[in-house]
């Protein structure tokens, strides 16, 4: 049996908004560690990994490990019915064919429950090894989202290059080219406004902007984003979810034919 209660229900709404366009159906894995998900987009180019640790919930009970297959579009429809200030409780059973979402208003004067049908999803859990990255860039998530949005109006791909000068985002398209360089900047009023570049060696990789833009849907979950780059490895774009866990996106670089 799974029973979890999240006082900050808006967080779960934001999580769904950040994955539903990338993945249609996914298994949510329930364990004593937390509520997690690993899923690929249909073209197997991008992978999303979500962890919401049990300690982050006001109440968390999971008697045994099991998975619940959900259509994320349908789950998003249900969670959109929760108010931003609502407390969300999720209840499910191992082997059950439905999951229940309960929404409580902060003043407890409105309580709603929605039951959603589950689905059988055959998915393989991939082991993602810990890796050393050539460069790790931490920057404000809103800045990264702005860059991806701006560049996608000019080109389809972004070249992310990290050198000792900074991190450069470049694109080219029919109308011209664009280069945006962000330098390390730690002299800011708030730590979340800093751009921090840890570089072991220069790296330059090309990615589809369509996916990067999809990842930036997670920006409301975190003020900062961490981009880990290594040649020969998928990029990792990570948004930490305060005190609860993370959402990580892995994307294969574009390679020459």
């Amino acid at each position: 049996m799974l029973e979890l209660r999240l006082v900050q229900g808006s967080l779960l709404k934001k999580v769904l908004e950040s994955i539903k366009d990338l993945v249609n159906d996914a298994n949510f894995d329930c364990s004593a560690t937390g509520f997690s998900l690993q899923a690929m987009d249909s073209s197997h180019v991008a992978l999303v990994s979500l962890l919401l640790r049990s300690e982050g919930f006001e109440h968390y009970r999971c008697d045994k490990n099991f998975s619940m297959g959900m259509n994320l579009g349908n789950m998003s429809k249900m969670l959109k019915c929760a108010g931003n200030d609502d407390i969300i409780t999720i209840k499910g059973d191992d082997g059950g064919d439905t999951i229940t979402f309960m929404f409580e208003s902060p003043s407890q004067d409105k309580i709603a429950d929605f039951e959603m049908k589950l689905m059988d999803i055959d998915s393989e859990h991939l082991g993602i090894p810990e890796a050393e990255y050539h460069a790790i860039v931490r920057m404000p998530s809103a800045e990264f989202a702005r860059i991806c949005k701006d560049l996608s109006s000019i080109g389809d791909t972004v070249i992310i290059s990290v050198t000792k000068e900074g991190v450069k985002f470049s694109t080219k398209g029919d109308i011209g080219t664009a280069n945006i360089v962000c330098r390390q900047n730690t002299t800011v009023d708030k730590p979340e406004e800093a751009t921090i570049i840890e570089m072991q060696e220069p790296v330059s990789l090309t990615f589809a902007l369509r996916y990067m833009n999809s990842f930036t849907k997670a920006s409301p979950l975190s003020n900062t984003v961490t981009i880990s780059l290594s040649s020969e490895l998928p990029v990792v774009v990570e948004y930490k979810i305060a005190e609860m866990g993370y959402i990580r996106y892995y994307l294969a670089p574009k390679i020459e034919d």
């Binding site: 690929m40 197997h44 180019v45």
Partner: peptide, 14 residues
């Protein structure tokens, strides 16, 4: 004319 790797194959082979 560029290709992208299949992440499932990538992680299964690493």
């Amino acid at each position: 004319n560029k290709h992208q790797a299949d992440l499932e194959k990538f992680y299964n082979s690493h």
